[in-house]
């Protein structure tokens, strides 16, 4: 009662931004880098799950 192998392969390859923009997930990690490199911080503060938004 499972999925056909051909569908498994097709969907897995089809379904499987974080590389384009190197988002950090910890504000303090971002602060530490910003302090060291003399850059400002860009915070995308969501009301929800970052994986769903980013």
């Amino acid at each position: 009662g499972g999925l056909a192998f051909s569908e498994f392969e097709e969907l897995h390859q089809r379904l499987q931004i974080w590389r384009t923009i190197p988002w950090k997930t910890s504000l303090l990690e971002a602060q530490s880098i910003a302090a060291r490199e003399g850059k400002p911080i860009f915070i995308w503060a969501m009301d929800g799950h970052p994986l769903g938004c980013v």
Partner: peptide, 11 residues
């Protein structure tokens, strides 16, 4: 990528 340190959080 070049000028900011970007961070994504669930506030």
């Amino acid at each position: 990528r070049e000028k900011f340190v970007p961070v994504a959080i669930d506030q």
